[in-house]
């Protein structure tokens, strides 16, 4: 995964802020600055409005804040592994997790950049798979996500593939086994159709 210099600088800045500033000052800054800190730390990879143009990197626009904080927590705890995010989250305080998650949760849902043309046959196969696996039972009838469950409609296809394969291999875990169990019922070639279908769903409004 590419990891731009701006992000590195942002991460360094973040470390400096959270360790050097006196606690009271850091807290006061925390209340107001997370939109700016999102711009400095997250935007280079995830997009200024949360729509990612970077390969293998998820869009955050329209993600529930509860999902965002849960994932930041799992990165920080070393239970979800991703080089850049693990490094960034490791330095975050509880207040940072809350602050970033609030900003992410407020990013309005937006369509993906250049998703590519849908392949009707693959979309149809993916749609049948989504039904078979009860995907939308948890992720929402329009795949819009809710609380700790992410929005997956209109997510980047390459990222969806990484995520689904990770669950299937057991290398990505949540609190519970739900996703690993769901992916136990799918063949590797089917994962590609499922990701293709989800990536081409229209982006629905937040619940």
């Amino acid at each position: 995964m590419s990891f731009g210099p701006r992000t590195l600088a942002g991460a360094a800045l973040l470390v400096a802020t959270s360790t050097a500033a006196p606690p009271a000052l850091a807290q006061a800054a925390a209340a107001t600055n997370y939109a700016e800190r999102y711009a400095a730390v997250c935007a280079a990879c995830h997009g200024a409005n949360g729509v990612s143009a970077l390969p293998n990197t998820p869009s955050l626009a329209g993600q529930p804040s509860f999902y965002a904080i849960t994932q930041l927590f799992l990165f920080r705890d070393g239970r979800r592994d991703s080089g850049p995010m693990t490094a960034i989250a490791k330095e975050m305080s509880d207040a940072d997790l809350r602050g970033y998650a609030e900003v992410i949760g407020a990013l309005p849902p937006a369509p993906p950049t250049a998703p590519g043309a849908p392949d009707a046959q693959r979309v149809a196969r993916g749609s049948a798979l989504a039904q078979r696996l009860h995907c939308l039972g948890c992720h929402g009838s329009a795949a819009e996500g809710t609380r700790q469950v992410p929005r997956i409609g209109g997510q980047r296809e390459d990222y969806l593939l990484i995520a689904l394969r990770g669950f299937r291999a057991g290398t990505r875990v949540g609190y519970g086994p739900a996703m690993t169990e769901a992916m136990a019922g799918i063949a590797p070639t089917e994962i590609e159709d499922l990701a293709h279908f989800l990536a081409h769903l229209p982006v629905a409004a937040s619940p």
Partner: peptide, 24 residues
């Protein structure tokens, strides 16, 4: 996954469909 590699190739697609009905 318990089923990987060679075993996987041996499995018919229908076998996946059977397991896949599972909800949490």
């Amino acid at each position: 996954p318990v089923v990987t590699g060679a075993t996987l190739l041996a499995l018919a697609a229908g076998a996946w469909a059977q397991k896949a009905e599972e909800e949490p």
